[in-house]
Design a binder for these strands. Structure first.
Lengths: 167, 167
DNA sequence: CCTTGACATGTAAGAAACGACATGTATTTT
DNA sequence: AAAATACATGTCGTTTCTTACATGTCAAGG
């Protein structure tokens, strides 16, 4: 169960509201861990109960800004360093690519074309992130990861095009 | 919910028992979709109820061999071609890599070293699969996907080493 | 002969996640 | 001024997943 550590990680970069975290999950973590607001709000309450986050102020529209505590930072470090990683994954795209060879050639081609189109969208998005567009500029700690994403996408795109050529 | 289609996909390659499918999930699908036997047995029963798989014989130790039906193949194709892919993921490794920049340098280095070691193991495994070791030899439909896995691992390994050098 | 390990199938309780419901405020656009 | 959109927080029923429990067979090695 990685949700609490994903939330702690995002709050370690900057404090934020539940709403804000929901968007950051979509924007930065979408290729790693998915969570919706209906998970995030209860998780913030649990983390507060454990003393790992605290309210750092209230704003307009009843918003509550959360910040990670020292205990929370310690827990995040402990998890990253000491806890045995769970390498199991759930990635529907990977499953689909795996099963693609089972399709007849014409259907396989159109499926591959859809995947290529989606991959181009994804790459455009990641390249913007890797360039640091708009965001916190150069101190942005996740720049390197976005660059990795771009490289992986390049490899995947080349593979998809090979598959299409071979079909 | 991709579990039923993952099971159908594996049965489309070759019939098998629940136990056998459990191992094939670990061996072939571990980088795409995780499922344990306690999910697989009930899922086979549900798929049978929908007419998508059928019992293809019984063997020693009370084993039941399952095969995909024509209806099952049709459903699998339909899902691959018509159903809108769900691009959300859950990948703890990706989450960890994403959060790595938050660690102090010395801890980050040791975490990176562990990741590199695990990546080497994974690559060795995938290279064997891509070469078609032991398995169904050249008609093995998932060879191409294993090759993609190897290429992605190469990119990830290079990135990890860069990160380590930069830390 | 006995033990260990791989083969083999299930169930059940609890945790996690999803999708829909529910409500309200502030800002921007028409 | 009104409407639409973005901001904002929550809950609830259902589905899905995990972990542990439970049981039994067959083959190989000591």
């Amino acid at each position: 169960m990685s949700l609490p550590h994903a939330v702690l990680g995002l709050l370690a970069v900057a404090p934020g509201t539940g709403y804000d975290l929901t968007r950051r999950f979509e924007a930065s973590l979408s290729h790693a861990w998915h969570a919706s607001h209906s998970q995030i709000y209860p998780e913030l309450a649990r983390l507060q109960g454990r003393g790992l986050v605290q309210e750092a102020g209230r704003g307009a529209r009843g918003s509550r800004t959360w910040a990670i505590t020292d205990q929370g930072l310690a827990e995040l470090d402990r998890w990253l360093v000491e806890v045995q990683p769970n390498r199991s994954q759930r990635n529907e795209t990977a499953l689909r690519w795996f099963l693609l060879p089972l399709l007849p050639a014409d259907q396989r081609r159109s499926a591959l074309e859809r995947e290529i189109a989606d991959m181009l969208d994804s790459t455009a998005y990641l390249e913007a992130a890797a360039a640091g567009s708009g965001e916190v500029a150069d101190d942005h700690p996740f720049r390197a990861t976005a660059k990795l994403g771009v490289r992986i996408n390049d490899v995947m795109l080349a593979w998809l095009r090979e598959q299409l050529a071979d079909t």
